[in-house]
Computed example of a mutant assay.
Amino acid sequence: MPCIFNGVPSRALVLVGLLAVGGCQHFAQGNRTADYPISKQFPQIYQQQLQASAHWQLIAHNEAQLLVTRFEDAPSLQLTPVQSNGNSAFHRAYHDFLAEGLLNEGALLYEAGEDAKVEFNIEVLDFSTRSQLNLPPGFISSTVLSAYIIGHAVEAWSNPAALLIPAAIGADFYQYMNADSATPNTEIILTTRVRQDARLVYSHSSIYYLRTADTGLYEGGGAIKVRGPVVL
Score class of each variant (00 low, 15 high):
R92N: 12
P136A: 15
T129A: 08
Y148G: 07
R92H: 09
F139A: 04
G86V: 10
F173R: 14
I140G: 05
F127S: 14
A147D: 12
T183Y: 00
L102C: 02
F120S: 02
E111D: 11
K117N: 05
T191Y: 08
T192A: 06
R92M: 12
A171P: 05
A89P: 01
P81H: 07
S181I: 15
E111Y: 06
T129M: 04
A167Y: 10
S76N: 08
L164Y: 01
I169Y: 00
Q78L: 06
A147V: 14
N104Y: 06
G86Y: 13
L145Q: 11
L109Y: 06
P137N: 10
T143W: 15
F97H: 03
A171D: 11
G151A: 14
A74H: 11
Y94D: 06
I140S: 09
F97E: 01
S128W: 02
A179H: 11
L77W: 04
E105A: 11
L133G: 08
G106I: 01
F127Y: 13
I188H: 00
H95D: 10
A156H: 10
L133Q: 12
N104K: 04
P136L: 13
P166I: 09
V118I: 13
L102Y: 01
F97D: 01
F90S: 12
L77A: 07
R92D: 10
N185K: 15
A93S: 14
Q175K: 02
L133D: 11
E111N: 07
D126H: 06
A147G: 13
Q78H: 07
E119A: 15
A153W: 02
H91D: 10
Q175V: 07
S76K: 13
L79S: 01
Y174M: 11
T183R: 01
D126F: 05
D126P: 02
F127E: 14
D115R: 06
L79D: 01
A167S: 15
A167P: 11
A153S: 12
H95M: 09
A167D: 08
G106W: 06
V154F: 13
L102M: 05
V154E: 12
I149F: 09
I140M: 12
A179S: 13
V82T: 03
L79A: 03
I169Q: 02
I122D: 00
H91A: 09
G101H: 13
A89T: 02
V144T: 13
